[in-house]
């Protein structure tokens, strides 16, 4: 197996794990947002603490999203390369 194919295999797993982490963090994010939007919280201190945590989680998710997008582009590029190589090989053999 060449390096490119190894990288594609690793990238597939990596993207899957990134997606799982983003999904998990998003659930926590949504739960905290629902607390913030509920009418139960009337004091500023609880609101402020929740807001700070929500912003921090959002920052983590956004950073993961950027990594995911960039990695996905690399992944697509590699797949494209391999399929072009295959195409070239089949054209040459014909």
């Amino acid at each position: 197996m060449n390096d490119e194919r190894l990288l594609i295999g690793a990238l597939t797993l990596y993207l899957g794990e990134l997606s799982k982490i983003m999904g998990g963090l998003n659930q926590h994010y949504l739960k905290l947002r629902s607390y913030l939007n509920s009418k139960e919280i009337k004091d500023e201190a609880t609101k402020e603490l929740l807001e700070e945590v929500i912003i921090s989680i959002k920052t983590e998710i956004d950073s993961l999203k950027k990594t995911y997008k960039a990695t996905k582009n690399i992944y697509k590029g590699l797949i494209r390369n391999i399929s072009n190589e295959k195409q070239d090989l089949s054209n040459n053999s014909n």
Binding site: E40, D43, T46, L49
Partner: peptide, 25 residues
């Protein structure tokens, strides 16, 4: 600062949510 503290906890309208927010923090 947002450092969790007893004063804010006592005054919180929902102690459970204050605790959860504090733990996430």
């Amino acid at each position: 600062t947002k450092i969790p503290n007893l004063e804010d906890l006592k005054n919180s309208s929902n102690k459970y949510i204050y605790y959860i927010a504090g733990m996430y923090w």
